[in-house]
Design a protein around this nucleic acid. Structure first.
Length: 326
DNA sequence: GGCCCTCTTTAGGGCCTT
């Protein structure tokens, strides 16, 4: 059981920029303001942030695209450009699913520690060859660590070893994912796990947020991990913004008519950022939508974890129970 | 496929994800 403790300082007045905490939204917002230019792939030292050149091809269709440029809109309708730099260690041979890592989140809460400093929150999205996780494959993954800063994004195409039959949806073609340097899922998973580990706080928790994640992204990810003889690390927790959207729709006077990501983007007046249905573009939109929804719902990090988070094993077990009951 | 809603639960339809 999680301690039912809510950190009131997260619940700041509506229409302030910070919602979850005075930390990560502030960080990401300040970071956006500091980095107003869009950079290419070259390294450099900007605003005292030292950049590191990535070790593998960084063309826009290759693995772990280094540079993300995006536009963000905060509550004050300020639109800024931001660049994030993802470095991925492609020489990863070790597979570190550190099950012995001690997570004492409840204890930390009971000790009244600042939960926002213990939780790493990723917004993520996947593009696939279709809806069926049994027959289809992931062809693109994007993550954004909402703490911001260097290496805060991770983005890569994935070789599905099959024909991409739905390029009209996302613009990702068979040719794009079959080129040299595009990793297969079994090769990508250890890299992904290492990347996430590199962003985790000592003794902290990790929360992945996706839109319709409970029904689509997370089960798809579980299926792909299992197919490649991996398991989702047990300390990864997930949350679904679809659930938050339903809460928004219940609010009296809410004019949100649909729970789709596009409807949420339009509802909050967030401009189109890149091509819809590309993973990182949708991640960028979702990060902003999440900010606004948590503001509207006065939702804290602890509230999100206590009321909306689930683990991969919980999701799998629930699914098995339902299948057995049929 | 999973979730939610309802003209419901002994069920069915709509939405959302690619």
């Amino acid at each position: 059981m999680r301690a039912a403790v809510c950190f009131s300082h997260f619940q700041l007045p509506k229409c302030q920029i910070h919602t979850f905490s005075g930390s990560w939204w502030e960080k990401i917002h300040n970071f956006n303001k500091k980095r107003s230019n869009i950079y290419g792939l070259q390294g450099g030292n900007t605003n005292s942030r030292r950049w590191t050149q990535k070790s593998l091809s960084t063309n826009t269709e290759g693995i772990a695209k280094n540079i993300l440029s995006r536009k963000t809109t905060n509550i004050g309708q300020q639109i800024t450009d931001v660049t994030s730099f993802t470095h991925t260690n492609l020489n990863t041979t070790k597979i570190k699913i550190n099950e012995s890592k001690s997570i004492h989140l409840e204890q930390k809460i009971s000790e009244n520690k600042d939960l926002s400093k213990l939780v790493t929150i990723f917004v993520f999205d996947i593009e696939t060859t279709g809806f069926s996780r049994e027959n289809e494959r992931i062809i693109e993954i994007a993550l954004q660590d909402l703490s911001g800063g260097v290496n805060s994004t991770f983005e890569t195409l994935v070789n599905p070893d099959k024909i991409v039959t739905n390029p009209h949806i996302h613009g990702i073609s068979t040719y794009m994912v079959n080129r040299p340097g595009i990793p297969r899922m079994k090769d990508l998973i250890p890299i992904l796990i290492d990347y996430v580990e590199s962003r985790q706080k000592p003794g902290g928790q990790t929360l992945f947020i996706a839109h319709n994640g409970k029904a689509f992204d997370v089960p798809f990810l579980i299926s792909e991990f299992n197919r490649c003889s991996f398991e989702i690390p047990p300390d990864w927790e997930f949350a679904d913004t679809m659930t938050l959207a339903r809460e928004i729709m219940k609010v009296e006077g809410s004019k949100l008519s649909s729970k789709s990501l596009q409807a949420l983007r339009e509802y909050y007046g967030i401009p189109v950022i890149g091509k819809a249905h590309r993973a990182m573009a949708d991640v960028n939109v979702l990060a902003l939508v999440l900010q606004r929804m948590t503001c509207d719902l006065k939702l804290t990090v602890s509230g999100l974890l206590e009321n909306y988070a689930f683990t991969a094993s919980e999701l799998s077990n629930n699914s098995k129970k339902k299948k057995n009951s049929r």
